[in-house]
Design a protein around this nucleic acid. Structure first.
Length: 440
DNA sequence: GTAGGGTTAG
């Protein structure tokens, strides 16, 4: 048969749109839907629209996805449960919780029953929007609607609780999974480890990691990173390093996060040399250090008393396209402070506004201490007095430095005033802390 | 030929 006689039908066009979706060509998907198909007089059906919505969703064009959803309703191609789920998912990815819930709640009105994917997409939208109660409500509603939660539902609701600080709730959900006949996956384990760590149960986190093989769940890079982090919190530094070294044997390529975790473990152990060795070995394994790796390395230099090296690292950050943040500045200022380099410390501190980095209490305490220690008591007091204007609440370190600076300058009244202010401020801070602890 | 999740490091 001659080729020209074969006209593509709606199925071929849908396959083409789907191919665009898989290849990330969302604009081309729209072109087929709105140009090619009308030209050849082939009517797009619900699958054509769904595939196009999905193409926009994958590339995170939530407005475009919603527009498609509206268009299909207008041209009387009735949205199916898949259209709704894809649209909700687009909103979720675009951080549009309200819109996602509007779509979800509209479903029963048009007699489209939400299925497990619709529920999961809505729960994820709540998670991203920081609404853990809402997420939990949806999770409970699905059981009532006879839609049995699967591993994705559990992971999403566990994550929501975790983000909302509901750590015990998150752990309880994880523990209940086997009873609900839902096999926890690697993501469930990783999320559970994270919750354990956040409540200070690092042993529990490690136990969780060690129980993975028995549950036939293969740990991934993130599981190892989480386990390393748990070891570090528990002071099990050798164990953390052992984990790091065992990764290649498990055919897991350590990521930039693994390196940062290992560097930080070395830092806590006091092994500056090994920490720096790890840092400089990163490019060899084709891993570009990021801002967190740099900050960890600067912190190592600070602890090791290497202020010159800290400055050098700080100055190398722009070339590595790592924008210095408040932690980079504070760590470098602290390194200079320890090295008695008040001019460097002050210069760094003064460069912060230009770099659009807001100094925090750590930056202030470090620079005030640097000036005070070098006998620059007037400078130290000036900086301390600037804190309220910058809306930074002084902590005990800044107060101590300010009191010392006052004493050095013979400003006894000033010193006494600061001392009294410190007592009440720190008292208030302790009171708040106690209140927080009580809540938990 | 169409829809879904996430965890880790300073």
């Amino acid at each position: 048969m001659p080729k020209a006689n074969i006209q593509p039908d709606v199925i071929s066009y849908n396959a083409a749109i789907s191919a665009c979706e898989k290849g990330g060509q969302w604009q081309h998907a729209l072109l087929i839907l709105f140009e090619t198909m009308p030209m050849t007089k082939v009517q797009p059906d619900v699958i054509s629209y769904n595939a196009a919505i999905s193409a926009c969703e994958k590339r995170r064009h939530w407005q475009q996805a919603l527009k498609l959803f509206e268009v299909m309703s207008k041209v009387k191609v009735h949205p199916s449960v898949i259209s709704y789920s894809a649209a909700i998912s687009s909103c979720e990815k675009g951080g549009q919780l309200e819109q996602a819930l509007i779509l979800f709640e509209a479903m029963p009105k048009v007699k489209v029953q939400p299925n497990i994917v619709s529920y999961n997409a809505a729960i994820s939208a709540c998670e991203k929007g920081g609404q853990w109660q809402q997420a939990l409500q949806l999770f409970e509603a699905m059981t009532r609607a006879n839609v049995q939660p699967d591993v994705i539902s559990y992971n999403a609701v566990i994550s929501s609780c975790e983000k909302g600080g509901q750590l015990q709730r998150a752990l309880k959900l994880f523990e209940v999974m086997p009873k609900a006949k839902v096999q926890p996956g690697v993501i469930s384990y990783n999320a559970a480890m994270s919750a354990c760590e956040k409540v200070g149960q690092w042993q529990q986190a490690l136990k969780c990691f060690q129980s993975m093989p028995k549950a036939k769940v293969k740990p991934d890079v993130i599981s190892c990173n989480a386990a390393m982090s748990a070891c570090e919190k528990g002071g099990q530094l050798q164990q953390a390093l052992k984990l790091f070294e065992s990764m290649p044997k498990a055919t897991l390529q350590p990521s930039v996060v693994s390196y940062s975790a290992a560097i930080s473990a070395c830092e806590k152990e006091g092994d500056w040399q090994l920490a720096m060795k790890l840092f400089v070995s990163m490019p060899r394994t084709k891993i570009q250090p990021n801002i967190i790796s740099y900050n960890a390395a600067i912190s190592v230099c600070e602890k090791g008393g290497e202020w010159k090296q800290a400055l050098k690292l700080f100055e190398a950050m722009p070339k590595a396209t790592a924008q210095a943040d408040v932690i980079s500045y504070s760590a470098t200022i602290s390194a200079c402070e320890k090295g008695g380099q008040w001019r460097h410390a002050l210069k760094l501190f003064e460069a912060m506004p230009k770099a659009k980095v807001q100094p925090n209490v750590i930056s202030y305490s470090a620079v005030i201490s640097a000036c005070e220690k070098s006998g620059q008591w007037q400078q130290a007091l000036m900086l301390f007095k600037a804190m309220p204007k910058a809306k930074v609440e002084p902590n005990i370190i800044s107060y101590t430095a300010a009191i010392s600076a006052s004493e050095k300058g013979g400003q006894w009244k000033q010193a006494l005033k600061f001392f009294e202010a410190q007592s009440s401020a720190i008292g208030q801070q302790l009171y708040n802390l106690a209140g927080n602890l009580h809540c938990h």
